Amino acid sequence: MIFLISALRILKDAIFSPSLPLRTRFHLLLLQPITLITYTIEWTISRKFPHSSTIQIPLKRTPGYSVRAVIYTPKSTSTSTSQPQTQPQIQTQKKPLHLNIHGGGFFGGLPEGNARFCAELAEKSGAVVVSTSYRYAPVHIFPDAHEDVQDVAEYLTLNAERLWNADPRILTLSGFSVGGNLALAVAQGLAGGEYAVKGFTAFEGVVDFRLPPWLKPKPPGFPKIDPLAFLQPLFDAYAGPNRLRDMENPLLHPTLADISTLPQNMLFNIAGADILRDESTRMAERLEVDARAFNQARGVPEIPETPDGKAVVVRARVFEGQIHGWTCMPSFAVDVEKRRQAFGDSIRFLRDVHRAYGYTRVELS
């Protein structure tokens, strides 16, 4: 099984990567059983929300290598115009293109890991949703994963219309945990061009690696004892080796990015009992101020309630009491209603973005 092979990569890196420090390899061995459990849960959930197809996406900056991505397509066809259409006409209309990037601390995860959200987004919005993988730490460190997802995005902009009749000019993104960080790097890479990102939503996204995990402020409600604290060095294996060199790099620290390089419409879903709460709320608050100034300079006096294709829109919501990764956990372990709200709000937000750029879902009988 793909998920088993992917999970055992941790063991392979621990045993067959002599260039890694012994301490790192020891931590990988400790991580392996946890990874098997996590991957099994992700794979099991993904069976309930199956993807439509799988592809290998070549990496432009690393010739000869590719990453695996899974595709979620809506079961019914949609239209990208508000004008009445006949069924044959509707079926030729282009769908929005959405790229999702999974989390996993940069050292693991599956593209199927966010199947619940990706499948629901495809079905309710009509978008073609591509969920991608990338190369993992500790063998690969910054900027490898960031370059990988930028290569994936470039491949999609060039091929999405041919492969799925999807319009890369209506491109939106989502990211879970470090996937949110990678998604914002994709947006920066495409900023100002033909395929500039129109919308983005993050779930517990990491936006600032200038501090290692053990120095990030703990919010109220954070567990007094972190059972995974012994693995914190691994969580820093991607960004930590060259932290001083990369301290001002907005690709790794999107909290430093200029708002003009970020998606036009952004929604941040923040877990209240997460060490990422502080950095996420600070970034969202800063962007809300910047958005008002940015819009006023362009003659838009107020930020609209929903995306309109003209204004820059920034929204953030804190889900109190929720821990990091809660949206990806099995239903018995989380507040299902809060997760439903987080996913529902994000899907509605992305649908509003699609609508602002001329796409409206039409259900076919």
Rank of each mutant, 00 (worst) to 15 (best):
T281S: 09
P307G: 11
M283I: 03
F294M: 03
I303N: 09
R317M: 10
R298D: 11
V314F: 02
I270K: 02
A271T: 06
P250K: 01
A291Y: 05
R298E: 06
G325V: 02
L252D: 04
P304K: 14
T306A: 11
L287S: 04
L287C: 00
L276F: 14
Q264R: 14
R292M: 11
G325P: 13
T306F: 12
R282P: 07
M283F: 01
N269S: 06
L262K: 04
R298H: 10
A271W: 04
Q322D: 10
Q264S: 10
N295I: 09
G272Q: 10
L251T: 15
M266R: 06
Q296V: 14
G272F: 12
L256H: 07
Q296A: 13
V313C: 03
T261H: 08
E285G: 06
L276I: 06
D274F: 00
A257K: 02
P301Q: 15
V289I: 10
T255Q: 08
A284F: 00
L267P: 12
N295M: 04
F319R: 07
E285M: 03
I303T: 15
D290V: 07
G299N: 08
R315F: 08
A316P: 08
P301Y: 15
A311M: 05
A271P: 00
T306S: 13
I259V: 09
T255C: 14
Q264K: 14
G299F: 14
R277W: 05
A293C: 08
A297C: 13
T281H: 00
R282D: 08
Q322L: 13
R277T: 15
R286P: 01
V313S: 04
I259C: 04
T261C: 07
F268S: 00
A311G: 11
A293V: 13
I323K: 03
R292A: 09
P254R: 00
F319W: 07
P304C: 13
E302T: 14
L252G: 06
N249K: 07
R317P: 04
N269W: 05
D290C: 08
V300P: 03
I323W: 12
Q322H: 07
R277E: 07
Q296D: 05
M266Q: 03
R315K: 13
L276T: 07
A293N: 15
E305L: 15
L276P: 04
A316Q: 11
L262T: 12
L262A: 02
L287N: 01
L256Y: 10
G272V: 14
Q296L: 12
L267A: 07
L251R: 14
D258S: 13
E302H: 14
S260V: 15
H253S: 12
K310T: 12
D258Y: 07
A293D: 08
R317K: 14
P307C: 06
P301V: 05
V300H: 05
P301K: 05
D258L: 09
V312S: 01
S260C: 12
I259Y: 00
P263D: 09
L287A: 01
R317L: 08
S260N: 10
M266H: 03
G272D: 08
E288A: 06
T306E: 15
L287G: 06
P301S: 13
L251H: 12
S260I: 12
P254D: 06
S280A: 08
Q264T: 12
I270M: 00
V313N: 08
Q264P: 10
I270E: 00
E302I: 07
A257P: 02
